[in-house]
Simulated scan of single mutants.
Amino acid sequence: MFTYKVDEEISLKLVTHRDAEEIFDLIERNRKHLRKWLGWLDVSTEIETTYQFIDANLRKFVVDEALDTAILYKGKIVGKIGLHTMNIGNKSAQIGYMLDENYEGKGIMTRAAKAMTDLGMYEYDLHKIEIRAAVENKKSRAIPERLGYKKEGRIRSAEWLYNEYVDHVVYGMLRSEWLTRT
């Protein structure tokens, strides 16, 4: 099984069926908190949907189209992060993430996103990684900004979130920039 040690507190592990209940419980506990920024929550109301999502991501993992990992903090799943829409031909991907509200403010997501960027650049030999976040999602936008990603622009009406379209800010990191960062 794929596991990547980030530091003494955090590891990333490939999400498998064994994680379905814990991930579903995390979503249930944080549904109200996450709903503001994640448009798929209303279709993920039963554990069967979590199993289906895991199946789809495992199939993508086998053909290098995605890497969906659980964030383990002191051995407990507290969130997820992954390389999504991975295109090996173009050597590009997007990072997406979510975190249990009770674990915010500990630097967990910044460390996990740094590790996921390392994995993308070093293990998958990607040329570019993007992180997209709703304009008003300041906590999510702070992650790429802390890591030195460049703000590349704004996508108007990028996502339908329940009752309105929201714009996204796109951040990008090129391999050459990541390898030479200070």
Score class of each variant (00 low, 15 high):
R35M: 14
E9R: 13
G153P: 10
M1A: 15
T182V: 07
K13N: 05
A113H: 04
A20S: 10
Y103H: 15
K151R: 15
V170S: 11
K5H: 12
L12K: 04
L174D: 05
I54Y: 07
I47F: 00
Y73E: 08
I77W: 01
L67F: 02
K139V: 06
L147T: 02
E130C: 02
K151D: 05
H17D: 11
R175W: 04
E48H: 10
G153T: 06
L26N: 01
T16L: 06
N90H: 09
F2E: 12
K139A: 13
N87T: 00
G105A: 14
V62P: 01
E159A: 12
V170K: 05
K5W: 05
E28G: 02
K5L: 11
D64C: 06
W40T: 03
N137F: 11
T69D: 05
G148T: 07
E46Q: 14
R29L: 06
I108F: 08
T182K: 15
V78Y: 05
N87D: 01
K114F: 11
I54W: 06
K13W: 04
N87C: 01
K151V: 06
R141G: 09
I88C: 04
A56N: 13
Y73D: 07
H84N: 08
S92Y: 01
Y4N: 10
G75R: 10
K150P: 01
L83S: 01
H127F: 09
R146Q: 12
V135T: 13
K32R: 13
E123K: 14
A56S: 13
Y4M: 10
L147K: 09
A142H: 14
W178T: 01
L67W: 00
L12A: 09
L83V: 00
I81A: 04
A56P: 02
T50K: 02
N87H: 01
H17N: 13
R111S: 13
K138E: 15
R154W: 05
K74M: 13
G96N: 04
Q94E: 00
W40C: 07
E21L: 00
R156A: 14
V135W: 08
Y97Q: 03
A20I: 02
I88V: 08
N57V: 01
W40N: 09
T45W: 06
Y122F: 09
V166E: 08
